[in-house]
């Protein structure tokens, strides 16, 4: 059955090595406390979801891990190195794709490598591989406005994969694509977590999506922002992608999360 634990000292007593560690992070905007004394560990090679109602600070936390926002207090460690800004060990996937509309798919995908000073033919070769990997072969010279929403996010994903960072940070990556595309994305994401030895941190507001894709789900609650629960589903995903949504543990966890979030949703 579901292994739901309450918050306590040994909340995350994991045997797995830790890729990203968030320790006592606070973030204030003037008098507003966006995050207060938040601690969380992200095991290596796993996908952890940050799930919670709007205003719980999940995107803020993700951007602090990315180095895009500076915390007011506390530290973030990635592979035991303290985060002071954006770095080559992390790559970001954006909710609105954040593609350059004036650049071709190939240029967009190789942008991260370009910023890292990789020489042109080399970076385009690498980009080409990842374009193929996300299934966009033949669209290298297309422009973002010629692609569907789902294809655009594949470009965003290829761009993040191309820099070969250890940690992939995804900010509601599938919320701007349609339902059917989203399902396909979720299946592909499971495969990606399986095949790449990368750590994924995934922000979402969809309970089903979080339970479907995650090795670990952190439930964040607002006012004050805190980690209220960490859920580690047992391996119902080993039964195959088609069986997950009918698995009783999956359904129990979804119900359970809804029960704990219900009172926070206006």
């Amino acid at each position: 059955m579901s292994q739901i634990k309450n918050v306590d000292e040994d909340l995350q007593n994991l045997e797995k090595p830790i890729a990203v560690s968030v320790d006592n992070i606070s973030k204030n905007y003037g008098n507003v406390e966006a995050l207060k004394d938040m601690s969380l560990k992200f095991p290596k090679g796993e996908l952890t979801s940050l799930l919670g109602p709007s205003g719980c600070g999940k995107t803020t936390l993700l951007k602090i891990i990315a180095g895009l926002l500076e915390p007011s207090a506390g530290t973030v460690m990635v592979n035991n190195k303290r985060v002071t800004g954006p770095g080559t060990d992390r790559a970001f996937v954006f909710q609105d794709f954040a593609l350059m509309p004036w650049a071709s798919v190939l240029k967009n995908v190789s942008f991260g490598l370009e910023m890292r000073g990789v020489e042109k033919t080399e970076r385009e070769g690498i980009a080409q591989n990842y374009i193929k990997e996300v299934g966009l072969q033949g669209f290298e010279n297309s422009f973002p406005h010629e692609l569907s929403g789902g294809m655009r996010q594949r470009v965003g994903l290829a761009r993040a994969l191309a820099v070969d960072a250890d940690v992939l940070l995804m900010d509601e990556p599938f919320s701007a694509v349609d339902e059917q595309t989203r399902r396909k994305f979720q299946e592909d994401l499971l495969q990606l977590v399986e095949s790449k030895n990368k750590t994924f941190i995934f922000v979402t507001h969809s309970i089903e999506e979080a339970v479907y894709v995650s090795d670990q789900i952190a439930i964040l609650l607002p006012r004050p922002s805190r980690v209220s629960k960490i859920i580690r589903p047992s391996n119902f995903r080993a039964k195959g992608v088609d069986a997950i949504r009918r698995d009783s543990e999956y359904l129990d966890i979804v119900d359970d999360i809804w029960t704990s979030l219900r009172s926070y949703v206006e």
């Binding site: 080559t88 909710q95 954040a98 910023m115």
Partner: peptide
């Protein structure tokens, strides 16, 4: 988010200027 994208991939201010802001 385009600016954040450039920052997250380590763009220097000059690179952000010529590769993002200008275009």
């Amino acid at each position: 988010s385009l600016v954040e994208m450039a920052t997250s991939f380590g763009a220097t201010p000059l690179k952000a200027f010529t590769k993002i802001y200008f275009w």
